[in-house]
C-alpha cells in the first residue's frame, strides 16, 4: 500500500519506482556507460600521439598543452552546442566533446608517465639493441602504465559526471532521466538517476584501480628500486569542467 503511494505523493525515495521503471533505468545506465567508455577510449588513443609529439620539444609541447588546457575551460553546454554544428543531434556530439575534455588529463599523464621512465631502463634497452619503436612499446609504455591509468581514472570519473549534460542533445544516459524528472517534477526519478550516476563513477574508479594492480604487479614489490616512482593519486592538478 504505502509502496504504491510513494509514486502518488512524489517522494524522493520510492521503491515502487525502482520496480516499475527498472527497464528505463537499465537502458539509461547502458547508454551512460557506453558514452563514457567510448569517450575515454577515444581520448586515450588520441592522447598518445599528442603526448609523443609534445615530448619532442618545447616547440610542440607549448601548443599541445595550451590547446588542451583551453578546451578544458569551455563550459560543457557550450561545447555540446558547438559540436552540434558538426555532428547534429547524435551520440557523436556527446562522445567527441567528452573525448576532448579527457585529453587535458590524459595527455599530461601520458607525458608524465613517459618522463618518469628511469634513464637506466632506457640505456639498458638501447644497449640490448632496441630501436625507438620497440623501446617505446616494450620498455617505456609498460613503465608508464601507473601514471597513464591514474589519468584514465580521473578522466573516467569526471566523464561519468559530465555525460549527464549530453541530455541537452538527447544522449545523456542517466542525465536524460534527470532532465525529464525535472520537467515532470518526478523526485524519485531525479534522485535515483543521480545516485546511480555517482555509484557508476565509484564503480568505474574501483574497476580501473583493480586493472592497474593486475597490469603492474611490480609496483607492489617494496624492495624494487623506487626511481621514477609515480604517486598513484594522479599527476594532473586540474579540476573537471562542468
Amino acid at each position: 500500500m504505502s509502496r504504491q503511494n510513494c509514486l502518488v505523493t512524489n517522494d524522493w525515495v520510492c521503491l515502487e519506482y525502482l520496480d516499475t521503471r527498472s527497464q528505463e533505468l537499465i537502458d539509461a545506465t547502458v547508454q551512460h556507460v557506453g558514452i563514457t567508455a567510448a569517450s575515454v577510449a577515444i581520448g586515450l588513443v588520441v592522447s598518445f600521439p599528442l603526448a609523443l609529439l609534445a615530448r619532442r620539444g618545447r616547440l610542440f609541447a607549448g601548443p599541445v598543452l595550451g590547446v588542451t588546457t583551453a578546451l578544458y575551460s569551455v563550459p560543457s553546454l557550450a561545447m555540446f552546442s558547438l559540436l552540434l554544428l558538426v555532428f547534429g543531434l547524435s551520440p557523436a556530439t556527446v562522445i567527441t566533446s567528452l573525448a576532448l575534455y579527457s585529453l587535458t588529463i590524459l595527455v599530461r599523464n601520458v607525458m608524465a608517465g613517459l618522463e618518469a621512465v628511469p634513464d637506466e631502463a632506457r640505456e639498458a634497452a638501447r644497449g640490448l639493441g632496441y630501436g625507438p619503436a620497440r623501446m617505446l612499446w616494450e620498455v617505456e609504455l609498460p613503465l608508464a602504465i601507473p601514471a597513464i591509468l591514474a589519468g584514465v581514472r580521473i578522466a573516467t570519473v569526471s566523464t561519468v559526471a559530465l555525460t549527464t549534460v549530453g541530455a541537452i542533445v538527447g544522449y545523456g544516459g542517466l542525465g536524460g532521466l534527470i532532465m525529464s524528472g525535472l520537467r515532470s517534477d518526478f523526485k524519485a526519478q531525479v534522485l535515483t538517476a543521480s545516485v546511480l550516476c555517482v555509484l557508476l563513477a565509484i564503480a568505474a574508479d574501483l574497476l580501473l584501480l583493480l586493472l592497474q594492480r593486475l597490469l603492474t604487479p611490480w609496483t607492489r614489490i617494496r624492495t624494487a628500486p623506487s626511481g621514477g616512482h609515480i604517486s598513484p593519486t594522479g599527476v594532473a592538478k586540474v579540476t573537471e569542467p562542468a
Binding site: I154, V157, S158, V160, A161, L162, T164, V165, A167, G175, I178, M179, G181, L182, D185, K187, V190, L191, A193, S194, C197, V198, A201, I202, D205, T233, T239, E240, A242
Partner: peptide
C-alpha cells in the same frame, strides 16, 4: 583537503542543480 576534490569530481553538476531546484 585533497579528497574533497576527488569527491567533487564524481558528483554531476547537473544532478546537484536539478536536485536543489526540486
Amino acid at each position: 583537503a585533497v579528497n574533497i576534490s576527488n569527491v567533487g569530481r564524481a558528483i554531476p553538476t547537473l544532478a546537484v542543480l536539478v536536485l536543489l531546484t526540486l
